[in-house]
Nucleic acid binder design. Structure first.
Length: 479
RNA sequence: GGCGGCAUCGCCAAGUGGUAAGGCAGCGGCCUGCAAAGCCGUUAUUCUCCAGUUCAAAUCUGGAUGCCGCCUCCA
């Protein structure tokens, strides 16, 4: 079954056919490193992480490139504010980026190039564009001439004339057309700069992606991704640069992810509702964030709220509870290891093949979970049960699905310990007191003094401690 | 002003012509001393509204209403 991808360029789902069968070249726009990553970044990163995982699982050899924009106005501003070099700012936030990515289980790309390491290739493309008459040099700046590229606007669905009519862009007297954009910016005093045929300066924002994607993936790449906001002008300009300079199709499939709102409001610094990844991880397990991010289709807008996060949390806890239950029965949660498949993996693939429909994929995970629990409910001794192989094959699939989605990375026991201590930290309850009360209750139960036992249960419940009586003792958790 | 998107159960959310997935919450049952967890069952004759095309529409067309995004840095 072929994978179908919604292509922003054609506005429809298309059968995915890479240029070279079996191989995929994929480029995703990474962050401008001038501040901490927020959950919007997390969404884009997680979405493309899942996509890459899935492409690889279906047998594609994926070369995944994700860049860092490490030179830019915002970085320079921040550096000036803090009285440090822009390089220091970039390095600080790149380090932080990796911390965040590791925390939320986003894998490294094959190459993670930085703009400042590719100044020569950038200059070469600009020279080529000037040579072809598609760019012009003006007083140390170089601009791309949008009117020289007849396809300008094809990605974002705009027409040059219409944009000019409604344009309220800054009046830059150096530009021939207000929509022309900078390929090279002349250095202002004290700004970081590189030598170029046009004097000291630095690259414009869009040109780095044209340069780096070509260097690592060639003239035409299979997939280019990023957030919806990048469609215009960033990706539109990348097309103009790359196709203008090399005369070949730049990207075959454009994939764009939707935005995150917070309590139905746009997430923005002015509204004060910006959430960084680190903020969210103070309250929620990283896989809760992942699960929340992929429980809707990647192109839809999603609303971040406590309710949605709590929903994702209970889902994750149920999955881990199943894993824990298996471990208690000495069943490997990594399945049989021989890739013997139940019905769930093919169903999951069917969902993912349709434009990476993770929402349906997760529902398949649920079916598998119910099935596994049902088998264990009905079994007296699962190790000798005739259904053991079925259970193992279900777990084989649960494990494979979780590898794609990037969840269930932790040992279940560790997971619940962490959840417990996180909850305890917020509740401020005394653990030894709880355990003492459980002892008392155990004694009461032994003496069949259920009134007293229930009283203790009630008391603990009132401070959000829930008890679970198991055959071999009582366990507790924080609600 | 230009371009585009969205509106599906209390909440979240799939579903692009064939008769409404899934999750959370709720309810009933099994299990339990009672619970919890788990399992089973159940909850939208209906998809913002109006009109139309069709044997057939949440899905297509036209209109209305509401919400949102992009056009300036942005995932």
């Amino acid at each position: 079954m072929a994978i179908r991808i919604y292509n922003t360029l054609t506005k429809q789902k298309e059968i995915f056919e890479p240029i070279i069968p079996g191989k995929v070249g994929m480029y995703v726009c990474g962050p401008t490193v001038y501040d901490s990553c927020h959950i919007g970044h997390a969404r884009a990163l997680v979405v493309f992480d899942v996509i890459v995982n899935y492409l690889r699982a279906t047998g594609y050899d994926v070369t995944y490139i994700r860049n860092f924009t490490d030179i830019d106005d915002k970085i320079i501003d921040r550096a000036n504010q803090l009285q440090v070099s822009s390089r220091e700012i970039a390095e600080k936030y790149i380090a932080e980026f990796y911390e965040d990515m590791d925390a939320i289980y986003v894998s490294r790309a094959n190459v993670e190039p930085k703009a400042t390491d590719h100044i020569q290739s950038i200059i070469q493309i600009i020279e080529q564009l000037i040579h072809k008459g598609m760019a012009y040099h003006e007083d140390g700046d170089v601009f791309y001439s949008v009117s020289a590229f007849s396809d300008y606007g094809k990605l974002s669905g705009r027409k040059l004339e219409e944009m000019e009519a409604g344009a309220r862009v800054d009046i830059n007297p150096k530009k021939k057309n207000p929509l022309d954009f900078a390929l090279w910016k002349a250095a202002k005093p004290d700004e970081p700069s590189w030598d170029s045929p046009w004097g000291k300066g630095r690259p414009g924002w869009h040109i780095e992606c044209s340069a780096m994607s070509r260097q690592y993936l060639g003239d035409t790449i299979d997939i280019h991704g990023g957030g919806k906001d990048l469609i215009f002008p960033h990706h539109e300009n990348e097309i103009a640069q790359s196709e203008g300079a090399f005369g070949k199709c730049f990207v075959r499939y454009w994939i764009h992810n939707g935005f995150i709102n917070i309590n139905h409001e746009k997430m923005s610094k002015s509204l004060g509702n910006f959430k960084t990844i680190k903020d969210v991880l103070k309250t929620y397990h990283p896989e809760v964030l992942r699960l929340f991010l992929i429980s809707s289709h990647y192109r839809s807008p999603i609303d971040f709220s406590d309710k949605s996060m709590d929903d994702a949390k209970s889902v994750l806890e149920r999955l881990y509870a199943l894993c824990k239950r298996c471990l208690e029965h000495k069943i490997s949660i990594h399945g049989s290891g021989d890739m013997s498949s139940s019905e769930y993996w093919p169903r999951f693939c069917e969902a993912m093949d349709d434009d990476f429909n993770t929402a349906i994929g997760i529902s398949v995970l649920f079916d598998a979970m119910h099935h596994a629990n049902r088998i264990m409910d009905q079994s007296v001794n699962i190790l000798q049960d005739e259904n053991k192989p079925v259970l193992l094959s279900i777990f084989e699939d649960i494990f494979r699905m979780s590898r794609i989605l990037g969840i269930l990375n932790e040992d279940p026991l560790t997971f619940f310990e962490k959840q417990k201590s996180k909850a305890l930290a917020q509740q401020q309850v005394d653990v030894s007191m709880i355990e003492q009360m459980i002892q008392e209750r155990a004694l009461a139960r032994k003496q069949r003094d259920f009134a007293k036992a229930d009283q203790i249960r009630q008391k603990l419940q009132s401070i959000n401690i829930i008890l679970e009586d198991k055959p071999d003792g009582t366990i507790w958790k924080v609600r």
